[in-house]
Design a binder for these strands. Sequence first.
DNA 1: TGACGGCGGCTAACGGCGTTAGCTAAGCTA
DNA 2: TAGCTTAGCTAACGCCGTTAGCCGCCGTCA
Lengths: 173, 173
Amino acid sequence: MVRGVKRVALSPDAVVDEAARLVDEEGWEALHLGRLADRLGIKTPSLYKHVGGLPDLRRRLTLQGLAGFRDALGAAESVAELGHAYRAFARAHPGLYAATATAAARTQDDEELRAAADAAVAPLLRVVGDDVHAARAVRAALHGFVTLERAGGFGLPASVDESFDRLLRTLTP
Amino acid sequence: MVRGVKRVALSPDAVVDEAARLVDEEGWEALHLGRLADRLGIKTPSLYKHVGGLPDLRRRLTLQGLAGFRDALGAAESVAELGHAYRAFARAHPGLYAATATAAARTQDDEELRAAADAAVAPLLRVVGDDVHAARAVRAALHGFVTLERAGGFGLPASVDESFDRLLRTLTP
DNA sequence: TGACGGCGGCTAACGGCGTTAGCTAAGCTA
DNA sequence: TAGCTTAGCTAACGCCGTTAGCCGCCGTCA
């Protein structure tokens, strides 16, 4: 620690938290170890004292995103409420949201990830009365909407908020 | 041409076509120049005699995907027909489908891409009677569904085909 | 027919990335 | 105080995209 202010002791959680800020600010695909190390004031190889590498870091971000999602949706008592909470989370944490979207493929051989994903989906199943097909429809619609919104896919000048309200009304007949 | 069978003359189109097969078989993110060069029986730097590099190649794949999409959806005369055609295309060409999803962010400064994207969306606007909000809802639902399906996001054993039918019925009240 | 020119392949090399090995210094513990 | 653990560092490797520059094949044309 030759130069600069004495930093708060680094830890796996501190590294993951900074990575979460990074992906929320610059996007999921902007997660580079060099970039992250710079923000933490250390060199890239030093990251390996706290996390296992890029795949491990991505997995931790996915877990953090799923936990945030569960917390954000847990109180919803209707499809409309859940929809608004869903979109709000995706807009507040675009990087973590993108991280959660990569979870499904890995729940096969990762029990912790599977449990976190199940917990995140539970509120949705609850508000649709355990109707799997309805849950899939709502989830697909919400995921597609926030993904397209974030990607800039809604080019026309019509209000995106109104489009979202219309979508929610379509989903709750 | 020291070794092997005499190859058909390579061209930009031939390179892009092979790249399209590659991404459809192995995924959009599996597009590496070394991998593509191997499949074409050449070395990586030789690719630059036909395409401008990885960003150019991605752009060409996006254009090809949007054109395929327009062709696949052009004949649809109802939301249900369009939905089935949409899902069929995404399943037949997952790599090109993923390529089209990256288009929106680049339509700002790429007129050709913008035109291709507009043409691909036109059939959707037609079947919903030029209702922008309805078009966004349908597109979001379809995009979300095929994305989650491809990502393995539908873990429960219930029939995905039936879920899709339910979604289409929800979208066409 | 023979010289020429362009085209499409090649090797060599560079910078940026993730990753590993191994050194060192600070700080806690016995 | 002596020693061990810990968390930083530098050096080095392999992979990837990219650029420069060389060379041989092939069609064209005098």
